[in-house]
Write a protein that binds this DNA or RNA. Structure first.
Length: 324
DNA sequence: AAAACCCCCAACCGCCCACCA
DNA sequence: CTGGTGGGCGGTTGGGGGTTT
């Protein structure tokens, strides 16, 4: 059925009587809406629509303004920091998109929702598990998110190295910088629960995290983890950080060997993760896990059958160990 | 080259709640 | 209490552009 030809169901009788326009907004409509709001402000969307000379529902005007025309709307790719925040906040609140959006200045609930549906759920689908399953949640928490943290820190370190020739070592805290659309600047200190981001956004100082203790997939203490492959970690420092309560294993306890043998979840990573990893020539540890480059080429071009096989392997591994 | 397929995201929908007369 | 209205939310759709076959 022609979407635009469909009769409009709307609560507002007055609007039912009008010949309302639907579909994509034109530049002229945008201009009208922006002009009107600049003069009269937001709110009263139904009457705003009429007074602005727009043949649109109030809802449509509101949505267009909030999701697109608002001057502080941030456009463009979701950054690593934003991805991390989305995963983190979603793990706490579920599909509370508007609530999550509050912590990502400039991003709309719609955009976050779209990100989740297109990117995150895609990976769940690839893993052939439900996006709401504990298994997938754990995959995010123990594999995907740590990888994001790693990448954020790596980028941050690169930026710092480019900015100065001096280096900090030893007791330097591990932090990453999150820049927002408003050029707000938040830092996250992975070694300190009372971090700036937690204070500013109130997201990192509660007890809601799925910890290794309450997770359905047990993250074992030392004895188990030391059995896992000991791939050189490009930046093992991040493991020593904690998000909330023991969110990540402490390196002093488990060392860099976070992941079990055969459980490095490349398919749980974003595509750009894989690309970035591939591009880092010093990351031949990946090759070490999976064999020489010649035989690991296929890993970068995972077909469904390969993934199925891989996933079954992981399932088997989990069943055998009951842990990562 | 073009058809088929896939992905992204702007826009819409239905439902709900708060507020007010 | 009730009905009307405004506004917010999560879920869904479909057009368009990119990619693959």
């Amino acid at each position: 059925m022609d979407e635009k030809g469909r009769s409009l169901k709307n609560n507002n009788n007055m609007e039912d009587e009008m010949d309302l326009k639907r579909g994509p907004w034109t530049a002229e409509e945008d201009f009208k809406l922006m002009n009107y709001i600049a003069t009269h402000g937001e709110g009263r969307w139904n009457s705003l629509s009429r007074f602005a000379g727009l043949q649109r529902t109030g809802k449509s005007c509101r949505l267009r303004w909030l999701n697109y025309l608002r001057p502080d709307v941030r456009r463009g790719n979701i950054t690593l920091e934003e991805q991390l925040l989305i995963l983190e906040l979603h793990s706490r609140w579920g599909n509370r998109w508007s609530k999550i959006a509050q912590y990502l200045p400039g991003r709309t609930d719609n955009e976050i929702k779209n990100y989740w549906r297109t990117r995150v759920q895609k990976h769940a689908k690839q893993l052939k598990c439900d996006v709401n399953s504990q298994q997938f949640k754990d995959t995010m928490k123990y594999l995907w998110m740590p990888r994001l943290v790693e990448r954020i820190q790596s980028a941050s370190a690169s930026a710092a190295a480019a900015a100065t020739t001096t280096t900090t070592t030893g007791s330097a805290t591990t932090s990453s910088c999150i820049t927002t659309s408003n050029n707000q600047f938040m830092t996250y200190d992975y070694n300190n629960n009372n971090n700036n981001m937690g204070q500013q956004f109130g997201v990192m100082s509660n007890n809601d995290y799925i910890t290794p203790e309450n997770s359905s997939v047990a993250v074992s203490p030392v004895s188990d983890l030391t059995e896992y492959y000991s791939a050189p970690n490009p930046n093992p420092e991040y493991y020593s950080g904690q998000m909330g309560n023991s969110y990540y294993p402490d390196q002093s306890l488990v060392g860099p060997e976070l992941f079990p043998d055969n459980y490095f979840d490349y398919s749980g990573l974003l595509d750009e993760d894989l690309t970035a990893m591939q591009e880092q020539s010093n990351l031949n540890w990946f090759e070490n896990i999976n064999g020489p480059a010649s035989s690991s080429d296929s890993l970068w071009n995972i077909g469904e059958s390969d993934e199925d096989f891989w996933f079954l392997q992981q399932q088997q591994q989990l069943n055998n160990n009951g842990s990562f």
